[in-house]
Design a protein around this nucleic acid. Structure first.
Lengths: 308, 308
DNA sequence: TGTTCATTGTTGTCCTGGACAAATAATCAT
DNA sequence: ATGATTATTTGTCCAGGACAACAATGAACA
């Protein structure tokens, strides 16, 4: 199936799924419904997608991520697609850039070296907590928005994430060990890759003296529960980016709430959680980084633990 | 499908795929072939897996990861499975622990605080390059082996990875910006999550004054190529963990070699690459961290760039 | 004007069961 | 021992129908 000879010009369906992020079922049903993509077949009847169709699928994926509907874009010509990408309106254009930071231009230009230097400078100037709240958070939103507008590449966003991780993790690590309460377990669920929100929360909580145990991204719920119990955790915190379907996030939080012992507090934060408080009994929805500090204070007050 | 009421006791097939990592097709074909799992059905005929079957599937997955064959484990009873996990022989038991580091006990006991402190101490004592080669690399192998032997939890491995990341990224960031050659682009391909190998290489190269641009994990090949060209990259380095199927790794490297401009050097490293040099014309296989330094020296010598 | 709820259309996921490609083990030749 | 064949296991792919989940729209209500 994957003959190296022709794989440079044609891709099997699994390869297309990898490269475009579109599921095999979706690719097949589009072919049936919209007549595109229209792959060739090998001798055994398996689909072989020419490189140009894969390229077009990538463009389509890009537009879908920006909120377009499939019926509008699957079946359009390449010219139409490019035109749509040009005139793509961002659904809810974020407010004007938050002023203080102009690191955005470094991201745009791929100047990672200058970006890193500027971040480090801001960290020293502002201290970790303000750095996270006033520099990293708005800049990350701006990067996300720029990607939505098609102004930056996927790789630019990856590179940005790497640089911020280097700075934030260095800062988090430079805090001495804390044995204070609460002990907070942080992670994201499978399907959620975005690590920056998690790191921002960790930085904020560590600044306040909480003992954070991060498991990184994509921890299965069963492992999460076991880890929480085994490590004597007080609070489990989950992060959901805007890319995560809000409905699923709610269902999974309720499921997790039912699996965890009731004395363990459950926090949920991230864009997908905006305005979902009422639907989540037993879960503390954390709206932003300031609210995370607030939630921490609430926990300490409720459990008779003094802040530092 | 996902009624929150019963989702605590029964899971739809997508949820099982998430939780166990076993594909939907695989779950269905096992049911057909081995008679397990045997999910209930909802009113619409869709599979509903009871929690106990999911638990058993998780155990099975665990054994498969350790090299068992499905025919041996998919039909077995819970007792048999547990027994097999006990007596699981590690296929190629690694050599005795590398002496110098006893951080392993901290991982085993979930003492992340002590682990972090011990890592930082080792970093200061050894310097970044030796720290990576003599402490992080063997310890990571040891952690992987312990997981294979079932001695530690998934969450312990995640927590370990997080701690090492904090230390390594802090150290990498503390190097000033380098504008020296070569400019190295580092990443893993979709399907490869393991980030530590990548970070170890980055730390090693940065120590030698190379300019590293990391894109983190799972960069699609098209984005990788574009980023390499746009950023004037000299060398693209990919990392493959032992979990990555060697055959696929080879195919993808050849594909990538064909996509990249010939003047860009391609490096491939990681366990999946052991002893695959001969099958990869045009790719420099990097066998370990020392070899990475060697490859760097080769590049500089071939391109007339003096080492620092 | 804005917030819920029902309706309608769209879209992705799930289904069956057969087929076969790819991975692994077993066997044989060098 | 190492490398090439063959046999067996195992996971992926196929078709095309069905319908659950999701978004957009419109109606009822605060």
């Amino acid at each position: 199936m994957n003959n190296p000879m022709d794989s440079a010009t044609a891709f099997c369906i699994a390869a297309v799924e990898r490269d475009t992020g579109l599921g095999k079922d979706t690719l097949r049903v589009w072919e049936r419904r919209y007549g595109f993509p229209k792959p060739d077949r090998d001798t055994k009847g398996e689909r072989l997608y020419p490189a140009e169709q894969v390229e077009k699928l990538r463009l389509i994926r890009c537009l879908l991520d920006r909120g377009q509907r499939p019926s509008k874009v699957v079946g359009a010509s390449m010219e139409d697609l490019r035109a749509m990408l040009e005139t793509a309106e961002v659904p809810k254009a974020s407010e004007s850039p938050p002023g203080a930071v102009d690191g955005m231009q470094y991201v745009r230009l791929g100047r990672t070296v200058e970006l890193a230097a500027s971040l480090r400078q801001a960290l020293l100037r502002q201290g970790l907590q303000r750095f996270v709240a006033e520099t990293v958070a708005p800049l990350s939103e701006e990067v996300g928005a720029a990607w939505m507008r098609g102004e930056i590449q996927v790789s630019d966003e990856h590179a940005y994430t790497e640089q911020v991780q280097n700075v934030l993790r260095g800062a988090i690590g430079s805090f001495g060990p804390s044995s204070e309460r609460p002990r907070v377990l942080l992670s994201t669920l499978p399907g959620e890759d975005h690590v920056l929100g998690l790191l921002m929360v960790e930085a904020t909580l560590v600044s306040e003296g909480a003992a954070c145990l991060s498991l990184g991204t994509r921890t299965p719920m069963a492992d999460l529960c076991r880890a929480a119990v085994d490590n004597g955790i007080d609070v489990v915190g989950l992060s959901f980016s805007a890319a995560f379907p809000a409905r699923q996030a709610i269902d999974r939080m309720l499921e997790l709430r039912a699996m965890l012992p009731p004395q363990i507090t459950l926090w949920a934060g991230g864009s997908a959680m905006r305005g979902k408080q009422k639907r989540l009994p037993g879960v503390r929805v954390v709206t932003d980084l300031d609210d995370a500090r607030q939630a921490l204070a609430e926990w300490r007050s409720a459990h008779g633990v003094a802040a530092r």
